[in-house]
Amino acid sequence: MDRKKAITLAVKMIKKNPIVSANGYISRDLFTVGDKTTNFYMIGSMGLASSIGLGLAIKNPKKRIFVFDGDGNILMNLGSLATIGSIKPRNLIHLVFDNNSHESTGGQPTSTKSINIAKIAKSTNFKVFLTKNESGLEKVLDKIKKMHGPIMIVIKIKNSDNVSERVPIEPLKIKRRFSRYLN
């Protein structure tokens, strides 16, 4: 399963719940497969999607907040797992699309081949799921529907040549429409 397939499936299951997506190919794919006002495309500030998601989760306890992250992104902000784990937001669901690489900068390796993100998340109070294919991802997304967070789903994906376009929406517009939806 490549990232676009995984994101397509996740978007279908998540429906209208808010999503914060990490910079790079993740935001591009999310825009391409299902642009919605409930998506916050974080086009810069690498590593911070999980932190923005935490802020949203604390202030919107009745909404399920989804974070679409990459392995490179979360490795840059592992501290956020400690902070999230100490606050334990029940409505935060963190999807990590893990291809063991910084794909959007040329496919350089990350350390997720040798270390276990799922174990790190588990030790910081996340409920953790690991999936490798579409049927697995579908099952997990269904299973967590009524489960309390924080939840992390690590989705092992393969790299592909199918690259989505850059998010063409102005950052200010991304913010305004997202904020309008929330408030």
Binding site: S50, S51, I52, G55, L56, N60, N77, T83, S179, N183
Partner: peptide, 21 residues
Amino acid sequence: LIATREEEAIGIATGFALSNS
């Protein structure tokens, strides 16, 4: 709320601000 790094703190505060807080 004490964060592990200042960038993380800014990220969390951004989530608050997007929620009009």
